[in-house]
Structure formats: structure tokens, C-alpha cells
Design a protein around this nucleic acid. Structure first.
Length: 495
RNA sequence: GGCGGCAUAGCCAAGUGGUAAGGCAGGGGCCUGCAAAGCCUUUACCCCCAGUUCGAAUCUGGGUGCCGCCUCCA
């Protein structure tokens, strides 16, 4: 089977071939750290975490780099607002980023370059561009000469003429930079320092880098002149990634990335979630509060992950109460399957810890594994992959329920173990993991419960249902649920 | 105005030529004193029109609607 990836550059799905056999070099455009991450960020980084995990599972050695933009007007504004510094604001939100992403079980990248740590690389790149005639200095700024780069527009499918037509009235607006630019579509590689703002020395005077250049420089520094996969949000295709290609390829003469992948947006009421529209929900706000749509429960981080994974990464997803409630319920179903071995395995002498260990090698010829692989090989179709997980989880849940509710012991342990192991392994590829409940508050007095059940049985026998219901309610209030099994036997379990 | 994408059950969402995965929600049945839980079971001809084909949700053309980008943006 062949892994195929939709390449924004060609607008087609293409078979995946690496530059170096078995190795993948991957770069992800990260966040500008001036605020907490919202669901759009969650969606994006879950998607790329998925790609990375799947590639690793498929046997590739993946080197994954994601940047932090820590030089930016918005960070400066925030710092002014808070009476703080750009460094302090960046540091704070980088920490917050890690906290949020850890909760979503997003694996840490292999490297997190920052603009402030990449100034040498940035200046070297600008210097090289200038030397080759793709950049020009103007009044302390340095601009990229878009018309010099013949391939400009190849990623986003744009032609400069088209841009011109649509941009009339916008580009010609009063813009101090416009005066310095040779062409309205040129963009800044380096910006002259403004008083009171952080600045770095350079051949062009004190200043700071433009936004697009940092990614080109970071890729070059961390991964080399050519990489396999470059990823980011669909809203970065133009101009950010287009400019990145121009900057990098103008210097190297080589294709920057073999595959360009872009994730779809998170929508609210059909509109893109974004800072500027103010319709965003931060990850921590969503996870830390009880939600009316979940009957006052808070959303499980894995349910949020599931919400994202239920749609293919390129499609937009709509953030609604109904979607969140559905995801939470879906997660409970999956979770019951994932915890099957922990809940019921001991009776067969299973070691729950071995489910995702190497002790038991996943059988890749298993039909479930094959269907999963087939779906995921098709441009990371997590939606299709999840269908396989749910089928396994539902089977296991049914078996578990038969054991709990009907005392069924006549089940095929070997088959169940295989299913459970497969489920846990595949779920892990999607980053979905359930932690077994710590058997902490085992403070239930089972003797007392049994005694009450006996009392209730007696009441039922004399048809004193008021009394029997009272006992049932009393136990319910303590979190003890009763199961009246066929045949008059009553069992109980802790909720 | 330019470029790109999407339209499948109540909701979400796979499926890209052979008569529709999966999830959520709902219906029915069994069990029960009633209930809960559980178990069993059930719910679509794929936006519209025309065409290609033995055969199309799936290909082509034309509509309609929605979204993204063209300004910072995951």
C-alpha cells in the first residue's frame, strides 16, 4: 500500500516519497505568542501531530520542527498593554502553549526555533537574497522584489495581475511602507527600528526581521535547503507560504518542500474562528469550565481531540454545542473500549500495561489494521480510521457490559485480547489514550451495600416497592447503581 | 473582481464508476413491580438540471447555495 498526500502545490494527491529513504524532515508554522491558543490552533497542531504519529507508525524516522514567532507587533502591543516586555510576553505564552498542547496529547517537536534565536540565519538569508538581486534596501527597510522571482504565485495559484485587479483600493491605501517599495507586492524582509521597540544590529541599520523571513531561515538552519513536508493552516497559503517559497527558492534554486499540507479552519456559526472576528474560544477556557451542553461536565481533552479527528484535516469543522456534546459521548464509547483490559482483563490474567508495549506485536495483516491503514494512507483520513476504532471499541464495550451486567464469563479471551490490543495500538496512532481511573477511593463498604440489597429484596418480595425504591435511591445517592438481573439476582457497581 | 474549496440521513462525517463506513441523537423490541443499566433491532437513493456510460453520490458541462484566501491570522 502507498501513502498518498494531498499537495497544495499541485492540488492533487501524490504518492509520498521522501528525499532520503525512510527519513522525513517536516516543518510546521507555529504560533505568534501573544495570547492563549484557541481551537483553531488546537485543530492545526492536532492535525500535524496526527501526520507525524502516522508517519512514525508507518516506519519513517521523522524530524519535526515547529517555530515560535516571538518578534511581532501584536506581542509588542500586548507588552505595552501589560506593562511588560516582548520577551516576558513571549515566554509566558510559550509556556501556556506547551501546557495546552500537552493536555491534547500533542507530542513535542524535536526543535522549537524562535525568531529571536534565529537572527543570524535571518540576516544571512537576507544578505544572500540581496546579493542575488532579489532584495533591495530602502530607507532602513529591506524588501523582496516579487517580480524578480518568476515562480511567485505557484503555491496559491495567483498571478500578480490578478492580485492587482482585486487589490485596487486596498494596496494603494496610505501606507508608509508603500512609498519605499518598488512594487506594491514586494514585502518586507527587514524593518527599520522604530523608537522604543526592540531592534537588532544589521548591515541595513538597526531593525527587526519581517514575518515571512523567519520561517525560511529556520527551515534552512534546522532542516536544510530542502525538506519533505511543510505544514500550516490554510490561511497561511497566501501570502506567508508563498513568500516563504520565494525567499528560500530564490536563494537555493531548489524546491523548498516536496509536499505542502494545509489544515482546514475551525468555524463558528459558519465563519472562521479568528482573533480579529473575536469569535474564538481558547483551549483552556473550553477545557477548564463546566459546560451547559454537557450537563455541567467539563470537556475531556481527548473528546476535543476526537472532535478534531472526526473530520479529515483539510475540511473545515464547525464548533457548536452539539458537536462538543457528540464528541464527549463518542469519547466515552471509545474510552470504554480502551479501558476494557484494565476493567476486565485481570480475570484472564492480562497485564494491562502490555497493551501498548512491545510485548505483543501488532498483527498488520489483521483486517482491522488493514482497513485502518488503508484509510490513513489516503491523505490521513482519520475519519475513516476512527470508524475502525469504534467498531473494535463497541465490540469490547458489549463484551464488558455482558460481564458487568449479566455476569457472562463465557467469552473468547484470546479474541478479546487481540481486539483490545489492536484498539489501544491504533488509538495511540491517533493520539487517543485513556487513563485508567486510579483505584483510590475504594472506600465503599460492600458488606453494608449487600445488606441493603438484601433488605430491598425482602421489601420487593412483599411488594413494598416504596421501600425498595427508597433503598435504591439511597444507594444511588452514594454513587452505587443497582442492576436487577434476570432471575432475581441484584448486583451493583460504583458509578 | 481574482484564485481555491465544499454541498451525503435530525446533527457530524467517510466513500471518487457497480446500487451508501462510522459517531451522536432518535424509534421499536426484550428484560423489570416500575425504572435504570444492559442486550437485540431500526432510520438516506447522496443540492438542482443536462450529458457520458450497460451502470454515477462518484466523470463532464451548466446552475444554485455556503466557506476560505487576496490585510494579521492555525
Amino acid at each position: 500500500m502507498t501513502l498518498t498526500i494531498y499537495n497544495t502545490l499541485t492540488r492533487r494527491k501524490e504518492p509520498f516519497e521522501t528525499l532520503q529513504s525512510g527519513k522525513v524532515r517536516m516543518y510546521c508554522c507555529g504560533v505568534t505568542v501573544y495570547d492563549y491558543c484557541h481551537l483553531g490552533h488546537a485543530r492545526s497542531y492536532i492535525a500535524w501531530d496526527l501526520v507525524r504519529r502516522y508517519l512514525v507508525w508507518r516506519g519513517y524516522e521523522v524530524y519535526y520542527v515547529q517555530n515560535f514567532t516571538d518578534i511581532d507587533d501584536k506581542i509588542l502591543n500586548r507588552a505595552r498593554q501589560d506593562g511588560s516586555s516582548m520577551e516576558a510576553v513571549s515566554e509566558r505564552f510559550i509556556q501556556a502553549y506547551f501546557e495546552d498542547m500537552d493536555r491534547l496529547n500533542i507530542r513535542r517537536a524535536d526543535a522549537y526555533p524562535r525568531a529571536t534565536h534565529t537572527l543570524d540565519g535571518i540576516k544571512r538569508l537576507i544578505f544572500d537574497l540581496e546579493k542575488k538581486g532579489y532584495a533591495y534596501a530602502a530607507g532602513g527597510d529591506v524588501y523582496f522584489a516579487v517580480r524578480r522571482f518568476a515562480d511567485y504565485g505557484k503555491l496559491s495559484g495567483r498571478k500578480l495581475e490578478d492580485l492587482q485587479a482585486g487589490a485596487s483600493g486596498r494596496v494603494t491605501a496610505i501606507d508608509p511602507e508603500a512609498v519605499k517599495k518598488h512594487d506594491p507586492f514586494d514585502f518586507a524582509l527587514w524593518k527599520a527600528a522604530k523608537s522604543g521597540e526592540p531592534a537588532w544590529d544589521s548591515d541595513w541599520g538597526q531593525g527587526r526581521p519581517g514575518w515571512h523571513i523567519e520561517c525560511s531561515a529556520m527551515v534552512r538552519d534546522c532542516l536544510g535547503e530542502q525538506i519533505d513536508i511543510h505544514v500550516g493552516g490554510a490561511d497561511l497559503v497566501f501570502p506567508h507560504h508563498e513568500n516563504e517559497i520565494a525567499q528560500s527558492e530564490a536563494v537555493t534554486g531548489q524546491r523548498l518542500a516536496r509536499y505542502w499540507m494545509h489544515n482546514g479552519m475551525v468555524n463558528v456559526g459558519g465563519e472562521k474562528m479568528s482573533k480579529s472576528l473575536g469569535n474564538f474560544t481558547t483551549i483552556r477556557d473550553l477545557l477548564d469550565h463546566s459546560l451547559p451542553c454537557l450537563d455541567g461536565q467539563s470537556l475531556d481533552p481527548m473528546a476535543l481531540r476526537l472532535f478534531v479527528l472526526q473530520a479529515q484535516y483539510r475540511k473545515p469543522i464547525d464548533f457548536t454545542d452539539a458537536a462538543i456534546a457528540s464528541a464527549q459521548n463518542s469519547w466515552h464509547t471509545l474510552k470504554e473500549g480502551l479501558l476494557f483490559g484494565h476493567e476486565h482483563g485481570t480475570q484472564w490474567g492480562w497485564n494491562p500495561a502490555s497493551a501498548n508495549g512491545s510485548a505483543h506485536v501488532l498483527d498488520r495483516s489483521d483486517p482491522a489494521v488493514q482497513r485502518f491503514t488503508e484509510a490513513m494512507d489516503d491523505d490521513f483520513n482519520s475519519s475513516g480510521g476512527l470508524a475502525v476504532l469504534f467498531e473494535l471499541a463497541k465490540d469490547l464495550r458489549r463484551a464488558g457490559n455482558l460481564i458487568t451486567h449479566q455476569g457472562d464469563r463465557d467469552l473468547d479471551a484470546e479474541t478479546l485480547y487481540q481486539q483490545w490490543h489492536t484498539l489501544v495500538s491504533l488509538a495511540q496512532v491517533l493520539g487517543l489514550e485513556a487513563q485508567p481511573q486510579a483505584p483510590a477511593e475504594a472506600e465503599v463498604d460492600s458488606a453494608a451495600i449487600e445488606a441493603l440489597i438484601q433488605q430491598r429484596q425482602a421489601a420487593r418480595q412483599t411488594k413494598n416497592f416504596a421501600e425498595s425504591d427508597r433503598i435504591r435511591d439511597q444507594l444511588k445517592a452514594q454513587g452505587i447503581a443497582l442492576i436487577d438481573q434476570p432471575g432475581g439476582v441484584t448486583t451493583w457497581y460504583q458509578e
